[in-house]
Computed example of a mutant assay.
Amino acid sequence: MTKIRLALCQMNVVDDKEANLKKASSMIRDSVANDTDFIVLPEMFNCPYSNDKFIEYGEEEADSLTLNVISELAKENDVYILAGSIPEREGDKLYNTSYLFDKSGSAIAKHRKMHLFDIDVKDKITFKESDVLTAGDEFTIVETDFGKIGIGICYDVRFVELARIMVENGTEILFYPGAFNQTTGPAHWELLFRSRALDNQVFCVGVAPALNMDASYHSYGHSIVTNPWGEVLAQASEKEELIFCEIDLSEIKKVREEIPVLKNKRKDLYEVIRK
């Protein structure tokens, strides 16, 4: 199967977990009604993007209301769902974690955000995830009916080594649920997704929350799909929106034959090493 129909659920996240789950469920059902194979939710889709809310909304995997809801929807609708990310609690630690559910509703992979969003853009925005979150340390590469995919979260997309390692291990689609802001988004969001796709000659997908001016953190939105040629195939606005995009994995082979970047690497001079 080389053709995959993606649904990107750019939902408006509010300070109400039940309302967020209701909205996510509604967008998932609308996606299924449009013959979607693979549905993606945004980073922190069940809670506002704020350190204090990460603590308040944190859930343990074993009894997570959020994960149970998404699992049932995947099973009920026979569809893959990448559950953006949620604040996942394990003991005294809190992680920013994405879960992938297969068509049976089983969680077949989870990615804990490896690179925490600690930034200080003078006079514009300061945020420090490490005040409450712990960084993950696992590469997330998973086999699906469509082949291997790789998962990162938001800030992870800026790190070229992570993407390259996932691609060298066979991934053909890189997914990054993310929540860039009104400073970093206009400057870097599209550029980064086009770059990671072009660098590695793969498809690259980013799904963000919609812009909510009532929230303390203003998401850039603009959920996006880019192809191995570095082109934008689909992109949302900043508003709540459900967008669909069909991708054809056979394009990867074509582009790599035309411009054999990965084959022409000077492995005798340099390499990216996975420890």
Rank of each mutant, 00 (worst) to 15 (best):
residue 25 S to Q: 03
residue 228 P to E: 09
residue 26 S to G: 11
residue 274 R to K: 10
residue 275 K to E: 06
residue 208 A to G: 03
residue 47 C to V: 08
residue 24 A to I: 11
residue 138 E to R: 12
residue 203 F to D: 02
residue 110 K to R: 15
residue 134 T to I: 03
residue 26 S to Q: 10
residue 87 P to W: 01
residue 156 D to P: 04
residue 184 T to L: 14
residue 177 P to D: 03
residue 62 A to Y: 06
residue 107 A to T: 05
residue 83 A to N: 00
residue 187 A to W: 05
residue 92 D to A: 12
residue 232 V to Y: 05
residue 138 E to M: 13
residue 164 R to Y: 02
residue 5 R to H: 03
residue 234 A to W: 00
residue 49 Y to W: 13
residue 225 V to I: 08
residue 165 I to A: 04
residue 161 E to F: 06
residue 236 A to N: 01
residue 68 N to K: 14
residue 208 A to K: 04
residue 100 L to H: 05
residue 214 D to E: 15
residue 136 G to F: 02
residue 27 M to W: 03
residue 222 H to Y: 01
residue 39 I to Q: 04
residue 213 M to L: 13
residue 206 G to Y: 00
residue 172 E to K: 15
residue 154 C to R: 09
residue 47 C to N: 07
residue 51 N to R: 12
residue 151 I to N: 05
residue 68 N to R: 11
residue 152 G to S: 05
residue 196 R to N: 12
residue 11 M to V: 13
residue 113 K to G: 04
residue 260 P to I: 13
residue 176 Y to W: 01
residue 139 F to L: 14
residue 63 D to A: 09
residue 206 G to K: 00
residue 122 K to H: 09
residue 240 E to A: 09
residue 11 M to N: 07
residue 68 N to E: 06
residue 92 D to V: 13
residue 213 M to D: 08
residue 125 I to N: 03
residue 155 Y to H: 14
residue 84 G to A: 08
residue 26 S to A: 14
residue 225 V to R: 04
residue 201 Q to A: 13
residue 197 A to E: 02
residue 73 L to Y: 05
residue 241 E to T: 02
residue 140 T to P: 01
residue 14 V to F: 07
residue 271 E to R: 15
residue 155 Y to F: 15
residue 254 K to I: 12
residue 126 T to V: 12
residue 154 C to F: 02
residue 139 F to D: 12
residue 83 A to I: 03
residue 53 K to S: 13
residue 256 R to Q: 08
residue 222 H to W: 02
residue 159 F to M: 14
residue 124 K to V: 08
residue 38 F to H: 04
residue 230 G to V: 09
residue 189 W to E: 11
residue 208 A to N: 13
residue 46 N to K: 07
residue 127 F to A: 10
residue 256 R to A: 10
residue 153 I to A: 08
residue 268 D to Q: 11
residue 209 P to G: 07
residue 264 N to T: 05
residue 90 E to A: 14
residue 232 V to Q: 08
residue 62 A to P: 03
residue 85 S to A: 09
residue 215 A to I: 00
residue 106 S to C: 13
residue 28 I to F: 00
residue 9 C to E: 00
residue 226 T to R: 06
residue 202 V to N: 02
residue 22 K to L: 11
residue 73 L to C: 13
residue 25 S to I: 04
residue 80 Y to S: 01
residue 119 I to A: 09
residue 231 E to Y: 00
residue 260 P to V: 07
residue 198 L to C: 05
residue 90 E to V: 15
residue 268 D to R: 10
residue 215 A to V: 05
residue 251 E to W: 04
residue 99 Y to A: 06
residue 31 S to Q: 08
residue 50 S to D: 12
residue 211 L to H: 02
residue 83 A to V: 04
residue 11 M to A: 07
residue 67 L to E: 07
residue 228 P to M: 10
residue 83 A to H: 02
residue 191 L to A: 12
residue 274 R to A: 11
residue 91 G to F: 10
residue 30 D to Q: 14
residue 190 E to V: 11
residue 57 Y to F: 15
residue 85 S to F: 07
residue 272 V to P: 01
residue 31 S to C: 06
residue 25 S to L: 02
residue 180 F to Y: 14
residue 67 L to M: 15
residue 229 W to D: 14
residue 92 D to F: 03
residue 259 I to Q: 09
residue 239 K to V: 11
residue 198 L to S: 11
residue 131 D to I: 03
residue 77 N to F: 10
residue 136 G to S: 10
residue 55 I to N: 14
residue 208 A to W: 00
residue 107 A to Y: 02
residue 245 C to M: 00
residue 47 C to I: 01
residue 10 Q to H: 09
residue 235 Q to K: 15
residue 58 G to D: 06
residue 228 P to W: 10
residue 161 E to S: 13
residue 147 G to R: 07
